[in-house]
Computed example of a mutant assay.
Amino acid sequence: MLQQLRALFGKAPAKPLLSLEPDNIPQHIAIIMDGNGRWAKSRGLPRMAGHHSGMKAVKRITMAADRLGVKYLTLYAFSTENWKRPKAEVEFLMKLPQEFLTMEIKDLMEKNVQIRMMGHKEELPSHTLKAVEDAVVQTSGNTGLVLTFALNYGSRKEMIEAVRSIGRDVKEGKLIPEDIEVSHMESHLLSAGVPDPDLLIRTSGELRLSNFMLWQLAYSEMWFTDVYWPEFTDEHFYEAVREYQRRARRYGGL
Rank of each mutant, 00 (worst) to 15 (best):
R208C: 04
A77R: 00
R249F: 07
Q245W: 12
P195K: 03
N211C: 00
K111N: 14
I201E: 00
D134I: 02
S79W: 04
K71T: 00
T74E: 14
D198R: 15
L5M: 10
R242F: 08
K130N: 13
E161I: 06
T233L: 01
N36S: 11
M33N: 02
V137G: 00
E243L: 02
Y244E: 00
L151P: 02
E122F: 09
E178R: 05
A12V: 12
N112P: 10
L68W: 04
L8D: 14
L200F: 13
A7W: 10
M48G: 04
H120P: 09
I201Y: 05
S53Q: 14
L45Y: 09
M213G: 05
T233Y: 00
I160N: 03
I25G: 10
M1E: 04
E110G: 01
P197D: 09
M103R: 04
V146L: 11
R6I: 14
V241G: 02
E231D: 05
L199C: 07
D169R: 12
T143R: 07
G69P: 06
L124Q: 09
P230E: 06
E221G: 08
G119S: 05
L200M: 14
S191L: 12
K41T: 14
R85L: 02
V163A: 12
V58W: 10
T80C: 08
A77K: 04
G205F: 12
N211I: 02
A218H: 10
Y228V: 03
H51P: 06
A192E: 10
Q4E: 12
S191E: 11
Q3P: 03
L189P: 09
I29L: 08
G119Y: 08
D179E: 09
V90G: 10
L129V: 02
T233H: 03
S165Y: 03
T139H: 11
D198E: 11
Y238W: 01
P46V: 06
G69A: 09
P46K: 02
D196Y: 07
H184Y: 06
I61P: 05
M63L: 13
V227L: 01
L20G: 14
G50R: 04
